[in-house]
Structures are given as C-alpha cells and as structure tokens.
Simulated assay, not measured.
Amino acid sequence: MSNPQVKHPIHDRNARGHTKIGWLDSYHTFSFGGFQDPDRMGFRSLRVINDDRVIPGAGFATHGHRDMEILTYVLEGELAHKDSLGNGSVIRPGDVQVMSAGTGIQHSEFNASKDDPVHFLQIWMLPDTQNLTPRYEQLNFGLEAKQGKLKLVASKDGRDGSVTIHQDINLYVSVLSSGDRVVFEMPSDRFAWVQVARGIVTLNGESLCEGDGVQIGSTEVLELTTEANAEILIFDLA
C-alpha cells in the first residue's frame, strides 16, 4: 500500500540555486558552481541535477571533466555534443546520453538550433571506480516505451537495453498524461530520488511541481499520478 503522505525531504524547486547569464538559464538541485549549500551536496552517489535552458546557437565551450558519470536528458530542442574521443552527435528528446569522464575528457555542448531554445537535464553521478577509461554512449527511448509506464534507461549492467553507468544506480523515466498511474516498489535496503522534469504530479498524496525533487530514504511503494501532463525521473540508488 502507498503511504498517504510523503514523509521525506522535498527539495523545493524555489530553493534551488540559479545561474542566469545572457545565453544560459540554469537551476541547480544540488550545490554547483556559485551555489553552495551544505544541505544540498547530493544524495547517495547522485551529485548534480542541473535544469538547463540555452538560447539558440549558444552553449558550453570545450571544457574538461574527470571521474564522473555525466548523463544528459533532453526535454525540448536539440543539443549538439562533441568530445575529445571523437564523438559528435545531436541529442534530442527521447535520447539518453552518458559520458564516463574517467581519467579525463574534454567536450562541448551547444544548442544545435539557430531558432529554438534547448531544455535539458544534466545529471552527474559519482562512479564506483576512479580512473576509468573515458567512454560515451547514446540511446533513444521512444515515447511509447515511457508513456504511462516506467522505463529503465540507465543501469550498471546496461540491462534491458539501457545505457551503462559505472555506479549501482537504476534510472527510470516516465511520461504521464491525465489519468496515468505508475508504481515503483523500492527494493529493500535501497534509496530513491524522484525528480519532476516537467508538469505536476502527485506522489503518495503529495503534490509536486516541475523542478521539485524528493529524497526517499526507506523502503516503500511509490505511486505517481497526474491530472495533466508530466515527465518524471526515478533514481534507484544503493
């Protein structure tokens, strides 16, 4: 049975860090850059969730990362990626891209459109092993696979056609329309993070809006519904 109310910390969307410059409008669920909050240093191996909007033709010039699993999830628009491994791609809604920075990687990310903005989540996860060989992977998960149900898109073992990440995390996504209901039964001795990417949802009786995150620290059944349209991510964490 579902709990009647969420009894776990809700990371309110209005308490996120915010970076707004000419070409970038970014909200930070956890401490990032100039936003530092000792109570928002991540959750388990989940370290960064940035909600980014980039104007047409602009983006992040070439910069470096190491020892981090970086996952990009596009909500609207198109994001062009290039890296020092020789990869060049465009990430679109439905795509999940993961980059294992490992011993070091350089990459750039730009809005691929000259006319339309791009809206995406960038998620950083601490790897279970340091100094890995850098790698890149990108897969598409169509709407049918996510509509009204939970779809595994990232996992440690790459099972069920998901992208592989070097950490004991299972990432599920779902797109919900009015009347849809999804249920996630947390495994024992696991933790969860629920992120509302778009829209409004009800989680075990509690209303959540776009940008809200919920930290779940005990085993329970999570029930999510919506009366409108929504998109959610559920991180199942060791």
Rank of each mutant, 00 (worst) to 15 (best):
N140E: 04
Y172P: 06
D168V: 08
A145V: 13
A197G: 00
D212G: 10
N229F: 13
N204L: 01
G148I: 09
N131Y: 11
G158K: 02
N170I: 01
P134V: 04
N204P: 03
V183P: 02
D212Q: 09
V214N: 06
E137K: 04
D128I: 08
D128P: 00
Q147W: 06
F184S: 03
L171W: 07
V214A: 11
D128L: 07
V182K: 03
Y172F: 15
L152A: 10
T225C: 08
E220A: 02
T225Q: 06
E210L: 10
V183A: 07
K146H: 11
L139I: 07
D180T: 02
Q147C: 07
E185G: 00
S178K: 14
L222V: 05
I200D: 06
V153S: 12
A228F: 14
S162K: 06
A145Q: 15
E137Q: 13
E210Y: 11
G205P: 01
R190G: 01
D168P: 02
V153C: 11
G161F: 13
E223H: 02
Q130I: 14
L171Y: 09
E220Q: 14
D189K: 05
T226C: 01
T225M: 05
E137G: 08
L222R: 02
E227T: 15
F184A: 03
D157Y: 04
P134Q: 05
Y172L: 14
G148T: 09
G199Y: 05
E137L: 05
G211P: 09
D157P: 00
S188E: 13
L208K: 09
A228I: 08
T226H: 00
K151V: 05
Q215P: 00
V214H: 08
T219N: 10
Q215K: 14
F141G: 05
V163W: 01
A228V: 11
V196P: 00
L224G: 07
V153L: 13
V201W: 03
A145G: 07
S177H: 13
T226S: 04
E137D: 10
A145H: 09
M186S: 02
A192C: 14
N229T: 15
G158M: 01
G158Q: 03
I165E: 07
L139S: 12
E220R: 02
G217W: 06
Q130N: 12
G158V: 03
L203Y: 03
G158N: 02
A154F: 00
E137F: 03
H166Y: 14
E220F: 01
I169W: 02
I165Y: 06
G148W: 05
P134L: 04
K151M: 13
L171Q: 14
Q130P: 02
N229E: 14
Q195H: 15
T164E: 07
S207M: 15
K146L: 11
I216Y: 04
S174M: 02
V175Y: 07
R181A: 14
N170T: 12
G217H: 12
K149Y: 05
F184M: 05
L132V: 10
